[in-house]
């Protein structure tokens, strides 16, 4: 467990980790353990039948598919938005910066109602999209993607933003001096530095999207096998007072999300370590910015 590498000069490891673990256990692990224990009241065969019914399988496909799409959209555009907000000056920059948090503060039901009004074939946007291109958004799985993109937008922007703010100008300048084009600098220097945060943002957006309910049900149409998300099936079970059935679906979602998140986190870890060791190989002096350290410690 304990590694005795030389860098353990920093204090507070036991305290911080201990506190984090206790808090995590109380608030997250014990309740989730309880959920799994509840579902264990069923035999494995019963669990399997419930978890793999036709409706359930269709709902997993819809839930995870639309979540993946929404998180990907946000990864691409979120990176651009974060970059633009940090690096460029333009009128209304601060306003747009603040706007990014809107999806969190707006209750999801309001978001769902508003988006449906916008994207229905009579709405501000829907009438053009459907009228011009015959493409239906509201009450189809595309509506789910729109709602999830909205709800999870802050994640990528807000995880990437502080990292971009933190990039030292020297790194880019050095790259430029060494003759790199702007694109090369971005691709070889900036992106690897931002990548771990980008992955984190993607993972967060993705996992939040999987569980989202309030905004989706208004725009989805909720037709079984077509646009029915797993959280809606959970509600359907609860509406029949079928608590066990609801916990089965909740546990399935939990396990799939856990595996996906763990893979993303491992990938992220690997990316971060690679980036760090590469940076160290390239120039042992450039990381950590000694001037900064002395200034702060003095």
């Amino acid at each position: 467990m304990k590694s005795n590498r030389p860098h353990r000069v920093l204090p507070g490891f036991n305290l911080s980790l201990g506190y984090a673990l206790v808090y995590l256990s109380l608030l997250v692990l014990i309740p989730l353990g309880g959920l799994i224990a509840k579902s264990a009241e069923l035999s494995l065969a019963e669990f399997w039948t419930l978890a793999t019914s036709q409706r359930s399988m269709a709902s997993y496909r819809i839930t995870f598919g639309t979540s993946l799409l929404a998180a990907s959209i946000n990864a691409v555009f979120g990176l651009i938005v974060a970059w633009v907000l940090v690096r460029y000056e333009f009128p209304g920059r601060r306003f747009f910066d603040a706007l990014v948090d809107l999806p969190f503060a707006l209750p999801t039901a309001v978001a769902g109602i508003t988006l449906t009004t916008l994207y229905a074939n009579t709405g501000w946007l829907g009438q053009y999209i459907e009228g011009q291109w015959g493409f239906k958004i509201a009450f189809t799985p595309w509506g789910i993607v729109v709602a999830l993109t909205f709800v999870t937008m802050p994640f990528v922007v807000r995880t990437v933003q502080p990292v971009i703010e933190d990039i030292e100008a020297e790194v880019e300048e050095a790259a430029a001096t060494l003759g790199a084009t702007r694109w090369q600098t971005f691709w070889r220097v900036l992106l690897p530095g931002v990548f771990p945060a980008l992955l984190t943002g993607f993972a967060l957006a993705f996992s939040r999207a999987i569980g989202e309910f309030g905004s989706v049900i208004f725009i989805a149409g909720n037709i079984p096998l077509v646009s029915e998300i797993t959280p809606l099936l959970i509600i359907a079970k609860l509406e029949q007072y079928d608590l066990i059935g609801a916990t089965v679906l909740a546990v399935v979602m939990l396990v799939i999300s856990f595996v996906l998140l763990l893979s993303i986190n491992l990938l992220q870890w690997w990316a971060a370590n690679r980036h760090r060791s590469e940076a160290r190989e390239l120039d042992p002096g450039s990381t950590g910015n000694p001037a900064n350290t002395q200034g702060a410690a003095a």
Partner: peptide
């Protein structure tokens, strides 16, 4: 990585399920 993932987990738990917990 496991710890990080566990911290992420509440994101993936549907709010309805969270209340149920």
């Amino acid at each position: 990585s496991l710890l990080t993932t566990l911290i992420d987990l509440p994101f993936a738990v549907s709010p309805v399920v969270a209340g149920l917990l």
